[in-house]
Amino acid sequence: MDDLPEEVQELIEELDEAAEDEDEDTIKELTQKLLETGADVEAITLKKLSILVMDGEEEMTRGWTEVAIQIGIDPFKTLIEGLAAGMSLIGKKYEQGEAFVPQLLIASAAMYSGMDLLAPYMKQDENSNSKPVTVVIGTVEGDVHDIGKSLVKTLLSANGFNCVDLGNDVPASRFIEAAKENKATAISMSTLMTTTMAEMPKVLNLLENEGIRDKLLVMVGGAPITAGYAAQIGANVSPHDAASAATWLKESIVNFPSESVRWD
């Protein structure tokens, strides 16, 4: 942004202020002025959105999403190259030990605040050919801790996965039902407590008993879960954190049979 003309930079700063104040009229007016400068407003907006989400600036993310809508950027492009890109940036920083959970949470809130504004426009594009890969996600029965699971969900969503969120305190049978109903590609289970770890093998045993274990990839995670434990109970992986869960799943689905081959 530093190499932009001074006039453009000033308008961007004014837009930031208007967005923070949630002043919709001023946002519209400034967006028009920005367009009149001849600058590449689409590129500026996408870049701004990714930085604002990374920094967890909820109000400003909403404001710049309004800019994106006003100038007519494809909503899917705004989502992927703006909002989700910002979530991936903070996810990578977290993976490298350069960011903490609160930063992920405020980034996540910022991303969803922008997505809420985009939602009505995205519905018009539902006839797209590409169907996102579905992941059934939840915290196991007896555990009400949501934060870790929600972060995995956010980062999976930011990477284009469709997450069926079962919430927390989820009975083993519910994971199986949801996987079947949604013809899921993966199940992601989490627990923060040693006391509820034993719920995870219950899910894997049910998958075996139902004869659908090979139709799904199974990720297990949470503070007490180790790679050794994942292997012991027959899960595919225990990613180190939310960001690596998304990275692992993206890589793993490349050679995984498609939904139609597995479920039909």
């Binding site: 609160p102 949470l105 949501d146 934060i147």
Partner: peptide, 11 residues
């Protein structure tokens, strides 16, 4: 709420 605490802790 723990999630609200975490977010407010940075804000």
């Amino acid at each position: 709420g723990a999630e609200n605490l975490s977010m407010l802790s940075i804000k």
